[in-house]
Design a binder for these strands. Sequence first.
DNA 1: TGGTTTGCTTGACAAAGTGAAACATCCAGG
DNA 2: CCTGGATGTTTCACTTTGTCAAGCAAACCA
Lengths: 150, 150
Amino acid sequence: MTRRMDPLTAEVVDLIGTIVARYYQEYDAAAAVHRLTGAQARVLALLAPGPMPMRQIAQRLKCEPSNVTGIVDRLEAQGLAERRADPADRRVKLAAATEQGRDTAAHLRASLDFAREPLGALSEQDRRTLRDLLQRMLGDAPAGGSPASA
Amino acid sequence: MTRRMDPLTAEVVDLIGTIVARYYQEYDAAAAVHRLTGAQARVLALLAPGPMPMRQIAQRLKCEPSNVTGIVDRLEAQGLAERRADPADRRVKLAAATEQGRDTAAHLRASLDFAREPLGALSEQDRRTLRDLLQRMLGDAPAGGSPASA
DNA sequence: TGGTTTGCTTGACAAAGTGAAACATCCAGG
DNA sequence: CCTGGATGTTTCACTTTGTCAAGCAAACCA
C-alpha cells in the first residue's frame, strides 16, 4: 500500500488541488453577487440553454433527485426558474429558467473572471498546449460542455 | 458587459470545470472509504504533518473557526484527532492527529488514484509542461503549500 | 491595574445532501 | 382491458457544512 508518487506528479497534483480550491471559491463568490449559492448557480447554468427534467438535473449534479427539488424550489422563489409540465410524460416536471433567470445566468457566466484572468498569463500557444494536455489527461472525454440532451 | 471569451479560452475553462468536478467527486469517494466526509478528510490531511491551532485550520479552509469546532469534534469522536493545550498560549487549542488518524491520512493519500491514474496518460515531459503551465497560470504562487502565517 | 484584542465554543439558523416512504403516471404481459 | 411493476417527483426526518452573534478565558498594552 501507499505506493510513493514521484515528486513531479505530486507537484502537479498539488497544483490541481490549488486550482480546484480557487475555482470553487471564485465560483461561489460570483454566485453570491447574484444572491445565489454555488449549487443554485450550477443548476441555473444548466437550465439556461433550455428546460430539463428534474431527474436529469440530478444526474448532472450527481446527487439524489430529492435534493434537486429543494434547489429548484429556491430558484423558483427568486423568480429565476419555474416548473413546467412535460406534454410527453405527465410524471415529469421540466425545470426552466425564466427570462430573468437566463439574464442572471448570462451575467454569471460573464463574471467568471476566474477563468479569463489567470489564463491571461498564457499565450495563445500556451493555452492550446494546456487544452491538449488536459484533454489527454481526461481521456479525451468531451469536456462536460454540451448537454446533447433532447 | 459580458465581454465574449474566445473559443479556445472557453474550451480550457470547460476542461478545468470538468477536472474540478471529478476531483471533488473522487476526493469524497476516497474519504467515504474511511467513513469520512470531504471536509473531515481535508482537516485530517492538514493535521497529518503535525498539530495546528484551530484558528489556523479555519484560515486554511477559508471558513469560520466555529465551523472547524464541529469538524474536529467529529474527528475526535472517531478517535482520529485530539485537542491539546498550547503551552505557549493557554487560549489556543492545538488539534492533532492521533496515531490512528495519521494512519488513516496516509491511506487516504495513497488512495488518491484520481491523481495518479489520469496523469498516467501523460509522459514525464508532458507532466513537466503541464506543471509549468499551471504554475504560470496561478501566478507562480507556491502550490497551496506553506502557510507562512505567524 | 483595566480595557481591548484574540482564540475557541456555543447556539440558532440556512443550505446541501442522503435515504425511505408516498403518490401519480407510464408501460408491458396476460 | 387491467393489473403489476417501474419511473419521476415530492415530502419527511436526519446529518454535515457553513454563517453569524454572543459569551468566556486568556493575553496584551498602556
